[in-house]
Design a protein around this nucleic acid. Structure first.
Ligand SMILES: [Mn+2]
Ligand SMILES: [Mn+2]
Ligand SMILES: [Mn+2]
Ligand SMILES: [Mn+2]
Lengths: 216, 216
DNA sequence: TTATTTTTTTAGACTTGCCTAAAAATTACA
DNA sequence: TGTAATTTTTAGGCAAGTCTAAAAAAATAA
């Protein structure tokens, strides 16, 4: 099996390579709040174990095996988040750090039974898809509300930022998963987005708009 | 907070000091399947943190703080075992290793909600008492069936060995928690114990008898 | 009480994962 | 294209936790 540190690196590389192709040393360092030199060390070790493709100065990508493992960690993370919200009644902004620890519990049988116990959920509390036990994951075609044309309507289906303050703000504004919103206007001056929801209008900043993902 | 290794040492010391007072270096080494020299190192560190009382060659005991922490780890271990058996339908011989990992999940709020979710169980699947959130634990006055007089009747309420083979053997013989048994006779020759259960007689070895605990 | 055995501690070393500082490679840009 | 800025790697070191081998202390036996 892989160490806790290795698992965290694989998950970070997976997350970063969803956005772009090859992942840079500095990106990984930022994501894991560590130093570039530490990343170089670890990436070499992962390359020795054939979990990533790596050549000096070229960045890194997951091998097939590495991606399988990463998807498994993501599966565990999201299933535990679902458990914490649905069974233990935590709020969606409270569960990330706990799941960050729980995702490293190694038993596959445990996670499969947890999955069954909860009725095979397909999305975590933040709208992210949960990979099945074979590592299959639905790529969701979501768009930030900042990236759609005026008068486009859609359902909030995900968030681009999982931080507690951001999620609490959304909660407070009732901008939660499943809500239907209409983008009324995007102000040219500072990219403020005017949303309509429940027949009320709501102004949100560019940063917030970038991190609310809707299915159209 | 304490590291995973520190937590495992504290739990081991707690377990050993329930049987006797001061715990020896070698006892800890055996319990944790490590070497005496490693134990000396760690015990020093725990003494520096004021979690154990230690003087060279004198063995070790938990301080009040150390015992509180140990009880908390025991609480987490037993609550997760209960969860695995009652909610995920694992068998009592399958859960120990998983709980060994899960007991290190640090959130107190999580464990308290888990406790509530399961209805505040008082005993784990092996009959061991679960400390409450303040660290109070019921000392159970159980006796091995090897230590009672002939014609004593009692209810199986705990086990002295948590290993998979032993628990599977008990399961197979239907010698499970809650069953009422009567000690009919202890054979002098090899301490075989003759039990009566459900109006049937059953011979068990000295080793097995030492590890079946009954409430009289 | 002395000698032997056992237990415990010390000394020194190794791995993992991380760090800082300096060197090397790459990229940006004037 | 050549210089400057940025990124990445290397070099060297540190803390945690473990190990083996040897020394010291304690317990046991003669
Ligand atoms: Mn993690
Ligand atoms: Mn999530
Ligand atoms: Mn443990
Ligand atoms: Mn147990």
């Amino acid at each position: 099996m892989n160490t806790l540190a290795e698992e965290n690196y694989l998950k970070a590389i997976y997350k970063l390579s969803c956005a772009e192709g090859n992942v840079s040393t500095n990106q990984i360092a930022t994501e894991l709040a560590t130093k570039a030199s530490s990343v170089t060390d670890m990436v070499r070790k992962l390359a020795d174990k054939a979990l990533v493709n790596y050549a000096r100065y070229q960045g890194v990508s997951l091998t097939h095996t590495g991606e399988k493992i990463a998807l498994n960690i993501v599966r565990r993370h999201r299933l535990w988040e679902y458990f914490l919200v649905e069974k233990l009644h935590f709020k969606w902004d409270e569960v990330h750090d706990m799941a960050e620890e729980m995702e490293h519990i190694s038993s596959t049988e445990l996670i499969n039974r947890l999955d069954a116990f909860m009725g095979y959920p397909t999305r975590d509390p933040h709208g992210d898809p949960i990979p099945d036990c074979d590592g299959n994951i639905k790529a969701s075609a979501l768009k930030p509300v900042s990236a759609v044309k005026a008068n486009t309507s859609g359902v909030i289906s995900g968030v681009g930022d999982h931080s507690t303050p951001f999620l609490q703000y959304l909660e407070q504004q009732k901008l939660t998963i499943g809500k239907r919103v209409m983008v009324k206007e995007i102000i040219g001056y500072d990219n403020t987005v005017i949303l309509e929801m429940d027949n009320k209008q709501l102004h949100i900043s560019r940063d917030v708009a970038n991190n609310i993902l809707i299915a159209i």
